[in-house]
Simulated scan of single mutants.
Amino acid sequence: MQQLWHELETFLKTNNPEQLDDLNPPASSAQIHELEKLLGVTLPDDFKTCLMRHDGQRGGAEWLFEGYEFLSARKIGLEWSALRRLLDRGDLDEPLGKPDPAVRHAWWDPHWIPFAANGAGDNLCLDLAPTREGNHGQVISYSHEFPRRSVKAPDFSAWFKAFANRLCA
């Protein structure tokens, strides 16, 4: 993870310094612990390592993850809490289409941890409660509008590596 971040930062320094400057300083262990406490989960180590390099973006530049803002620990908590409130009110119980066999058949699950948001209600999430066909910590897409949930990568490291390779190629 550290090497991938180094390569990404080097690329951004030359090609998009505003985006590099928009990255927050590292999250502290205490911030990550508080986030885990709020979410009621233990975050995957690779994702915690990522947050300890950069705690998301400030939000003053182009979003880092191909149209998605890299969320800070604070914003992850806010995004998750908003979805949790909708779930608790019964607003997320609409009919679903055919599910991806690796993803739980639900409109939203509290074990889906948003780490990137497009500002319109869609997220990239860490799936910490996959089906037997899935992987703990797999990256999935969540749409507020469309019921199909799909796996983007088997874990955060694989997703981040693919993202960095596409961007830096």
Rank of each mutant, 00 (worst) to 15 (best):
S141D: 09
G137M: 07
S81Q: 11
E36Y: 05
F146A: 13
E36Q: 15
D109C: 10
L128Q: 03
C125G: 01
R85M: 10
E145C: 12
G56I: 02
L167N: 11
S141F: 08
P95M: 09
L167P: 11
R53E: 03
L64T: 01
A27G: 14
L12C: 02
F47N: 00
C168W: 03
G134A: 11
A120K: 10
L167K: 15
H6F: 13
T131W: 08
Q57C: 09
F163R: 02
H33L: 10
H6A: 14
L96I: 13
F11K: 04
T14G: 06
K152T: 01
L78A: 08
A164T: 15
L8F: 04
E9I: 06
S143K: 03
K13C: 09
F47V: 01
A129W: 07
H144T: 14
F115I: 11
I32S: 05
S29H: 09
K37H: 09
A164N: 10
N123T: 02
G121A: 03
E133N: 10
T49N: 06
P44K: 05
E62G: 15
D122G: 04
L87V: 01
K48E: 00
Y142W: 08
Y142C: 03
G67T: 05
L64M: 09
D55P: 14
K48P: 00
A61L: 04
P101A: 03
H136E: 08
V139P: 05
W63P: 00
H54Y: 12
R85I: 07
S150M: 10
A82Q: 13
L78K: 06
K98A: 13
P99V: 03
H6N: 13
W107D: 07
A129K: 13
D109W: 08
P147E: 12
I32M: 09
I113N: 04
D155H: 06
D122M: 04
A30Y: 15
H105A: 15
W108T: 04
G90H: 08
P95L: 11
E7K: 15
S29T: 09
E79K: 11
A164C: 15
S29V: 05
P17A: 15
L78M: 06
D22N: 02
W108M: 06
C168H: 02
L126F: 01
E36T: 06
L8K: 05
D91Y: 09
W112P: 04
P114W: 05
D55Y: 12
Y68L: 14
K13L: 13
D109R: 07
N16L: 12
W5L: 05
R85Y: 12
N15S: 07
K75P: 00
D45N: 01
L124A: 02
T14K: 11
F160N: 00
E145M: 12
D122F: 04
F160W: 08
D122P: 04
F47Y: 14
E66K: 12
K75I: 01
M52S: 14
L39Q: 06
C168A: 11
A73M: 00
T49R: 03
A30C: 09
G119C: 07
E18A: 14
L23W: 06
Q138H: 11
R89P: 04
P110T: 10
A120H: 12
L126A: 00
A73H: 00
R74E: 13
